[in-house]
Design a protein around this nucleic acid. Structure first.
Lengths: 212, 212
DNA sequence: AGGTGTGAACACTTTCACAGCA
DNA sequence: TGCTGTGAAAGTGTTCACACCT
């Protein structure tokens, strides 16, 4: 089996999960698809369809048990375990990412930081010492790295990604604004800030006349 | 008219634009949809369809004039002008964004930085002095701000967005991991790092058995 | 010949509507 | 009754295939 699950579904699952965690903290035990839809900006049918790809988690006439559904989603998303992450690039973006507590609290441990700049190598960031990018393959194998966050200049990024992949990493989060080539079976996500801003520019230019 | 243009098309246009700029720097004068597709990881038909929403820019039998198409795309994306941006939140992410040269070089000028933390207010970052979030509306009106980049904690973000919108901003780039409510006519883009990582986690968990 | 522009076919996603269970 | 789970319908986006222009 292993049906193809669409990207948009996956994004919504991640959102549902966050909402369920909040509900749980508030001590709410049960939630309907209607309610979950309201909180996630989608429709009740969409919520039910998204969940239905993985099983039947609700009770008819009642809704979903918050804790139970949260646990299911966590398992579905592969978040019942922790992931080992290498951060390549200790510049501004890398540094902000390293300090972002949200990663650790959601199961992603940055176990190593690497940079090509000799003046950065050896610096201590909290628990980790910045290593030399030359040792990339070594570090990945030694730390059993699962995921690479790549925050290096656009000229360097394809080279880094090739090495990371050949060292066995199958999940990559890229911050450089290029279309990267990765082999089949490697999951790649891009975060392109410029692309997002340009999309805003496009919207603003088109709907200029729709004022309040 | 003003047909609805899909989000994926807009993202590709932004990518085409970057590729065309690179081709121009390399002194390449002409490009085919086939070639552009290869460089952007899509298909020739997709490229032609994307462009066809806005007009006919190519010459049959020849392809597209790089410079000409670049100019057209720039206009289509609303990038022939500069955009005035306020950055709300001078924490780690805010600081990394401020230092990211890519924004300025692509037409986005950060004209003001604001933070709610009194200890940060008054600090000088390059050309700008960090202002107090209390003066948000003032700053937006005084600087004729078009776009707000919001990098504040998740608890604060909806409040900031409401104020930003009521002060007249119609484009928002949000870094907090929540679904924000904005009125019709306001363009909102989310950058959710956790969501991207969770999507990676999902992929990795599902395709665990597809090894080389 | 060579490569664009585009209607028509196809694939995928979302919404609808309702049967079925608590 | 109330709300889930799900086929069927509607809507969107992508690919195909070819007429048409240079």
């Amino acid at each position: 089996m292993t049906r193809k699950i669409s990207d948009s579904t996956v994004r919504r699952l991640s959102l549902y999960l966050r909402i369920l965690e909040a509900l749980e903290r508030e001590g709410i035990a049960t939630v309907s698809s209607e309610d979950l839809a309201g909180r996630s900006g989608t429709t009740a049918a969409q919520v039910r369809k998204d969940l239905s790809h993985f099983g039947s988690f609700g009770k008819r006439g009642l809704g979903y048990a918050v804790r139970d559904l949260r646990e299911h989603l966590q398992r579905i998303m592969g978040l019942e375990r922790r992931w080992r992450v290498v951060l390549v690039g200790a510049g501004r973006i890398g540094s902000a990412l390293f300090d972002y507590a949200g990663f650790r609290s959601r199961g992603f441990d940055i176990v190593a930081v690497l940079d090509a700049d000799a003046s950065k190598v050896g610096q201590r960031w909290g628990e980790v010492v910045i290593g030399d990018s030359a040792s990339l393959e070594d570090i990945i194998r030694r730390h059993c790295v699962d995921v690479a966050i790549v925050a290096v200049p656009v000229e360097a990024v394809q080279g880094v990604v090739d090495r990371v992949v050949s060292a066995g990493v199958r999940g990559i989060l890229n911050f450089a604004p290029t279309r990267l080539r990765v082999p089949e079976g490697v999951a790649l996500k891009d975060v392109s800030l410029v692309m997002e801003l340009e999309a805003l520019s496009f919207s603003l230019s088109r709907h200029a006349s729709l004022g309040p």
